[in-house]
Amino acid sequence: MFFYVIRRLLYMIPTLLGVAFLTFLLFTIFGEDPVRQALGLHASEEAIVALRAKWGLDQSFAKQFYDFLVQILTFDYGESFSTGEKLSDIFCGGVLVSLSLTAPPFVFGTLFNIVIALFISYFRGKSLDKISTFLFVVSMSISYLVYIIVLQYLLAYRFGWFPIQGFEPGFSSISYLMLPWFIIGLVSMGPDIRLFRTIFLDQVKSDYIRTARAKGASEPRVLFVHLLKNAMIPILTNTVIAIPFLITGAFVMERYFALPGIGDITITAINEGDFPIIKAMTVMSAVLYSCFNLLTDVLYALVDPRVKLS
C-alpha cells in the first residue's frame, strides 16, 4: 500500500508537467497580451516595456516556463495583475472560505443522508418510503437557484434570521455561513437519499443478506453491519468525486452570498483578465483532481478486500 501510494505520486509528476505546459502554452500563445490589458490602449511604450520586464514577459519561452514551474513548486505565484496582492495569500484565504462553506454540509449532510436512506430502506415499500420518494422527486425538480433565492429572501431578508450576505473571518463567520450550509444540505438531500436508497435496495436482495438473516442477525444488524459495509463501495465512488468541488468552491453560492471563496475569486479573475490567477487555478485544480483520484483508490482498498493495491 505504502509503495503503491509513492508510485502513484511519482506518476503524477509527468501528468502535472503536461498540464502545466499546456496551460502555459495556451496562455502565452492564445491569451491576450496581459500588459496591454493591464495598462489599457493608451499606455506609453516605456510603461509597457517596464511592466513586461517586471512580469518577466521579456524572457525566452523556456525561461518563462521554468519560472512558472518554480512558481508552482514554491506555491509562490507572484502577484495579481489587477490588485497587486500576493496570489498565494489570495488563494489561501479563498480555499479556507470555500472549504468552510462546503465541507461541513458535505460531511454531516452525507452522514445524515446515509442514515435517513437506511431508515427509508428499512421501511421499503411502506407508505413512508412512497411519500418520501414523492417528496424527493418534487424537491429535485426545483432548480438550485430557486432554493437560494427563495430562502435568502424569506429567511434572511423577510424574517431577518440570518445576514443576507457578506463574510467576516474567524468565529463570526458562522452566522454568515449558516444559511448557505442549510441550503447546500437541503439541496443535497433529494439526490443523495434517492441514490443511497437505490444502492441499499439493490444490496438488500443479495444472497449474503439472506445468509445473515438466516444466522439470526436482527434487521438493524443486517442493515448497519452487513449491508452498509457493502454499500460503502458504490457510495464512496459517488461522494469522493464531489470532494474537489468542495475546494474549488460552490460558485453560485459564493456569488449569491458574497463569500470571498475560490469560486468567487476565479470568476472575478476571468472577468478582469487576471491571468496569473487563472493560470494558477488551472494547475491547482489538476493537482487536486489527481490527489483525490488517488485518495478514492486508497479508500476503495480500505473498504473492499477484493481490491488489492500493487
Binding site: 444472497d207 449474503y208 445468509t211 478486500p305
Partner: peptide, 15 residues
C-alpha cells in the same frame, strides 16, 4: 439453520 443453493454468493464479500 439453513444452507443455501448458491454457495458462491451466499457469503458476505467484505467480511
Amino acid at each position: 439453520a439453513m444452507i443455501f443453493q448458491e454457495p458462491l454468493t451466499a457469503l458476505n464479500p467484505v467480511f
